Computed example of a mutant assay.
Amino acid sequence: PERKVPIGFWMHRSYVPFISMSHFKNIHWHTLKPIIEEIWRQGHQVLFYAEGDWTTHLDSFAELPEGSIVFHVDRSDIYEVRKKLKDRFCVSGGIPNWLLSIGTPEEVQRYCKKVIDVLASDGGYIMDASAIIQNDAKVENVKAMTEFTRSYGLYPLEQAQGLKQQLHSMEEVDETGPTLRSKVKPGICIPWEEKRKELPRILGGENLLRRIWEEVESFGYLFIWQILLSF
């Protein structure tokens, strides 16, 4: 409602060769394009979460109003994406999920450099995996992607060193001052002790209610992290 984030649009395989080019142009794109244009007229941007290889259809997407979408790269050719879309839209993604799962941190960093050089040299790029980061992604690889982007992916590039120092100073902890620590254990959003205060008198077994609450609450925590890691 506040128009601060794009409206997510998951584009599942509506491209050649899953459908013919004729079906794409005359059915899929013929109906989708005016919807995106109307959403843009209403002041909303759309995230084209383009899972799969949409390289064949980049010319069609370039017909949309400038700035109306964020194009997320899964398997599309990043060089073609830059050539046909980069001057019109923000681009995100491009780091293969398989690389995060079975690659090394060094391989991840090299690939991140390639994607940043192609898609982010003049801004307008959001670092992300090709698709939602899966459970088999190595922690050290996700960390390598994040840390490399924060050090190499700052722009304008000539100001990178100054911004890097600024980020470092923001992260420094004043060891002489008080240390703020969360009272909530990791993996929990709302502890049972806090939720219990909102409930009326419990006549039955409180342990049963607590167990059910903590099981349900854990799904909420998992959902939040899924969204954070995905977008």
Rank of each mutant, 00 (worst) to 15 (best):
L180H: 15
I132A: 13
S68R: 07
F219Y: 11
F148Q: 03
V46L: 14
D128Y: 00
L167S: 14
W29T: 02
K183G: 15
G220A: 13
V173L: 14
K183A: 15
I190L: 15
M21A: 13
A160I: 05
M127D: 02
R181W: 03
I116K: 12
R75Q: 14
V142W: 06
P178K: 14
E194W: 13
R3N: 08
K164A: 10
I39T: 15
I212Y: 02
L99E: 04
Q42D: 08
G43V: 07
P156C: 07
N207M: 05
V73E: 10
I212P: 02
S22K: 11
N207A: 15
E63A: 07
M21L: 14
P17T: 09
R181F: 03
K183M: 09
Q165L: 10
H57M: 05
P200C: 11
L229A: 12
F71D: 07
H168T: 15
E206C: 06
M170S: 00
A129K: 01
K25E: 11
S14W: 10
L180D: 11
V5N: 01
I27Q: 14
M127R: 00
G187V: 10
P186T: 08
K138M: 05
T31N: 14
G67I: 07
S60C: 09
R210Q: 12
M21C: 05
K143C: 01
L154S: 02
P17K: 05
C112E: 04
R88Q: 08
Y15G: 00
T31H: 15
M170D: 05
D117A: 14
N97C: 12
K183P: 02
H30L: 03
G43W: 03
R82K: 12
K86I: 07
I202L: 15
F71H: 02
N141W: 06
S182P: 03
F231N: 08
E214D: 11
E107F: 04
Y15T: 13
M11H: 00
